[in-house]
Amino acid sequence: METSTTTFTRSEHVAISPKILYFGTPVVLLSTLNADGSANLAPMSSAWALGQSIVLGIGAPGQTALNLRERPEVVINIPSPELWPQVERLAPLTGRHPVPESKRGTFRYEPDKFGAAELRPEPSQLVSPPRVAECPLQFEARAEKLHEGGGGAFVIVEATVLRVHADPRLVVPGTDHVDPAAWSPLIYNFRHYFGLGPELGHTFRSETPRVTL
């Protein structure tokens, strides 16, 4: 019997020292409450989920970290790819006044983040900070634990999700499942914005497999 073998050629890797390690992670917008009751809104791309918990990595000098230490409620708003210009409008802004020394010269103070990004706040149901109306997915959450990381440069936040809001166009009818074929997150890939490409397949544990005829 004749057999066929396939030979894979592996390129030789090179050692590099990139300044950042955002190898392709979803962007989220964190809304928190300032001491005066106004809302702060901050983009970030260091988040991962496990069950009903989401771990966030945020800069220690920013207003978000300050707010969460004092008022541990947050909404994790997840934008779709077409919202990248609004996300980028937020990128050079800080809600901290005066601007922290580590941010001076790069960031500027802006008290009205929603207005600056041309996004609309809408009331949450279980927490005080508002949701971002334009984001198709919104997670109301409570920050349970805050840990210092990176020698004090950032804060690791363990948050418990209390309620999930979804654009009905993303939900499989009659279920609580988000349809992966209908939903695409905004991806931050080495400081560039991307959406998802075509579906390649699904894991054996998927509850929303696509039926092919």
Rank of each mutant, 00 (worst) to 15 (best):
A166I: 13
R142T: 13
P136M: 04
H202M: 05
L196K: 07
L170G: 09
D167Y: 01
V171I: 15
H177T: 03
R191G: 12
V132R: 00
H165T: 03
T175H: 11
G201T: 03
A181Q: 14
E148A: 13
P180R: 11
I156N: 00
T203F: 13
S184V: 07
R142W: 07
H192R: 09
Y188P: 02
H202D: 10
A141I: 01
Y193L: 13
V171E: 13
P173Y: 13
E207P: 03
H177G: 10
V157P: 00
D176M: 14
P198V: 10
H147Y: 15
P123D: 02
L146A: 12
L146G: 06
F204I: 15
H165Q: 06
G152K: 06
V172R: 03
H165V: 04
L146V: 13
L170N: 09
C135F: 03
D179F: 04
F204A: 15
A159V: 04
A181I: 11
P198N: 12
A182C: 07
T160H: 11
E148C: 09
E199Q: 15
Y193D: 13
A182E: 11
P198C: 10
T203I: 10
V155Q: 02
D179G: 05
L126E: 12
L137D: 01
A181V: 12
R205I: 13
V127R: 03
A141R: 00
G152M: 04
L170S: 12
D179V: 09
E148W: 09
P121D: 07
F190G: 11
H177V: 12
A143P: 00
E199P: 08
A153D: 06
R120H: 14
N189A: 13
L186E: 07
L196D: 13
T175P: 08
R163Q: 08
Q125N: 07
L186H: 06
H202G: 09
R163W: 02
T160L: 09
H147W: 14
L137C: 08
V157I: 02
G150D: 11
P173N: 15
I187H: 04
G195N: 05
E158D: 08
R131P: 04
S206L: 07
R191H: 11
E207F: 06
H147V: 13
N189P: 00
V172L: 08
A159W: 01
E134G: 00
F154P: 02
P168C: 14
Q138R: 09
D167R: 03
F204N: 14
L170E: 08
A182V: 07
L137A: 10
E207R: 12
S206V: 10
S184T: 08
L162T: 03
E199W: 04
E144G: 12
V171M: 15
H192E: 14
